[in-house]
């Protein structure tokens, strides 16, 4: 099942999430938007970190770990914002 969200961050940036979810498990995630992340390639590791994650997991913790492992720095959005955008997409199914 494909779930999507658009999450406007305070300060103006936009996060657009697409999740492929099967049997309560995220199979693939796309975290798109007009934010900044350095190094840019870290986005792939961050998205990958959500693969295989149960929808009831602590999404923010998963993302925070991935950002830290990648040694990445966000600008314009926080890890909490990314998590909120992902959770918003999940709610679009589970509400």
């Amino acid at each position: 099942m494909l779930l999507t969200s658009e999450y406007k961050v305070k300060g103006g940036k936009m996060i657009k999430v697409k999740l492929d979810v099967e049997e309560n498990v995220i199979r693939r995630a796309l975290i798109a938007g007009d934010f900044f992340l350095y190094p840019e390639e870290a986005i792939e590791q961050i998205e990958e970190s959500l693969s295989g994650v149960n929808v009831s997991s602590d999404i923010e913790q998963v993302l925070a770990n991935a950002v830290m492992r990648a040694g990445a720095q966000l600008l314009g959005v926080s890890v909490g914002d990314l998590a909120s955008a992902v959770k918003l997409a999940l709610q679009n199914e589970f509400r």
Partner: peptide, 9 residues
């Protein structure tokens, strides 16, 4: 478009 943006979106 920015590096992180989705073309189709």
């Amino acid at each position: 478009i920015g590096y992180f943006q989705s073309l189709e979106q």
